[in-house]
Every structure is written in C-alpha cells, then in structure tokens.
C-alpha cells in the first residue's frame, strides 16, 4: 500500500498557512475599511428589541399608507 503521510502533513501545514494569511489579510482590510467599527455590532442589540411590538406599529402604519 503506497502512502502519502509526509505530503499530507505538508498539505496540512499549507492549509494552516493559507488560513493564517487569509485571517491577517481580512483583519487588516477590515480595519482599513472601518468595518471593525462600532456600528458593526448593531445586530446584537437589535435582536433584543421587542420586535413583536415594533412590527405591530409597522403593520398599523402600513394600513394607514
């Protein structure tokens, strides 16, 4: 049975490397574009809002419109 243990380890290292480079690339890019800012955390506050009530008002306004 022919085997490829060493190439597989190199592949794993290679994937680690790509992962690392990709991670750093996107981190730098997101800092530059201002994504790492405050408003990117909006969804976590919005999901707490009592959407049922909010949407009821929206529904009412739709009826008016």
């Amino acid at each position: 049975m022919h085997d490829y243990v060493y190439p597989s380890i190199f592949l794993a290292y290679f994937m680690f490397f790509i992962f690392l480079v990709g991670g750093i690339f996107f981190l730098v890019k997101s800092l530059r574009h201002g994504y790492w800012g405050k408003n990117s955390e909006d969804p976590k506050y919005r999901m707490l809002a009592d959407d049922e009530q909010e949407m009821t008002t929206r529904k009412a306004s739709e009826v008016e419109g």
């Binding site: 996107f26 890019k29 997101s30 574009h33 201002g34 994504y35 990117s40 969804p43």
Partner: peptide, 8 residues
C-alpha cells in the same frame, strides 16, 4: 467593501 460582508 468589507462593510458589506455580513449584509450580503
């Protein structure tokens, strides 16, 4: 551009 990543 990246601002769109979690919007699209």
């Amino acid at each position: 551009m990246l601002g769109k990543t979690d919007k699209s």
